[in-house]
């Protein structure tokens, strides 16, 4: 049952992505409005599927790698929809929904596969660790989406090309605010996620920290975002620089994550 719901959600996520991209192409807000409703529907069905899945397996649906991706997509959608209510930035969906759709597709590869949990994952601290970290990281992805749109819109305004395309994009202030909020909320969540993980690692592996490639990567990410947040809050970086840096940090982390997972073996990889 959960798989059926998941597949339906997947299709509606696709529809929503198509809707958002259409709205960019035909430059009408109406298409984005419809796409937002699709996204909301997909999100609801996805939520049902997550609940059904955790009832079926008896653990929260965030343990396996693919489950985590699906949860990641769910958090991104939830946050985007919440922001959309506050700032009416429909077109940001054109950046968010494709990412969500890809995540959901990748997550579906192992759909419904019977997973038996290794003992290291059968602790009560594992779900909070994953939920906190994934939510934090999803917020960082959103921050980069907003940052990217900021740079595009800013480029239009700086170069005096405020034609129909620029009209679709939200105002600079709204995009900066989204970037700011996502960093502000994402950072403490990731921090707590790492701390919970470290506590659990002590129980499972006997030490808080092991210099595992994935742990190093996380530390790198945490530090970069700490710097970014510091620049924003203490130095007062706004607008262009903040947007630029948040994209820079994100792409750097993405690349180093790919390298880390391709060339190094990690104890932090499960199912």
């Amino acid at each position: 049952m959960d798989i059926l719901f998941y597949k339906v959600a997947l299709i509606i996520y696709l529809l929503s992505t198509v809707g958002y991209i259409t709205s960019l192409l035909v430059r009408r807000v109406l298409a984005a409005r419809v796409a937002t409703w699709f996204l909301f529907t997909a999100f609801t069905i996805h939520s049902v599927s997550l609940v059904l899945c955790s009832i079926k397996t008896g653990h929260s649906p965030v343990i396996g790698f693919h489950e985590t991706l699906s949860f990641f997509a769910w958090v991104m959608t939830a946050t985007y929809l919440a922001l959309q209510l506050k700032t009416k930035t429909r077109v940001l969906g054109a950046f968010v929904s494709p990412v969500v759709f890809l995540l959901v597709i990748v997550a579906s590869i192992r759909l419904g596969g019977d997973v038996s949990l290794p003992t290291v994952l059968q602790g009560s601290l594992v779900p909070p660790h994953v939920i906190l970290s994934v939510t934090g990281e999803a917020l960082f992805v959103l921050a980069s989406c907003a940052g990217m749109m900021y740079l595009i819109q800013e480029n239009f305004i700086k170069n005096k090309k405020v034609k129909s395309f620029s009209r679709l994009l939200p105002s600079l202030r709204d995009l900066d605010k989204i970037n700011h909020l996502c960093l502000l909320w994402g950072f403490p969540l990731l921090t707590m996620g790492i701390l919970v993980g470290a506590i659990w690692a002590r129980t499972a592996w006997g030490s808080h920290w092991q210099w595992d490639p994935k742990q190093v990567w996380t530390l790198l990410a945490w530090t970069s975002y700490a710097i970014l947040l510091h620049q924003r809050l203490a130095i007062g970086w706004k607008g262009h620089k903040a947007a630029f840096l948040s994209i820079g940090v994100f792409s750097f982390l993405l690349v180093s994550f790919i390298i880390a997972s391709m060339f190094f073996t990690t104890v932090h990889s499960f199912i």
Binding site: T87, Q153, I157, V162, S166, R167, P170, S171, L172, R173, D174
Partner: peptide
Amino acid sequence: SNAVSVSFAAVELAKKIFG
């Protein structure tokens, strides 16, 4: 839609920047 006077164009730009 869209400004057809210079002063309105300025208002629209301000809204693009500041919301």
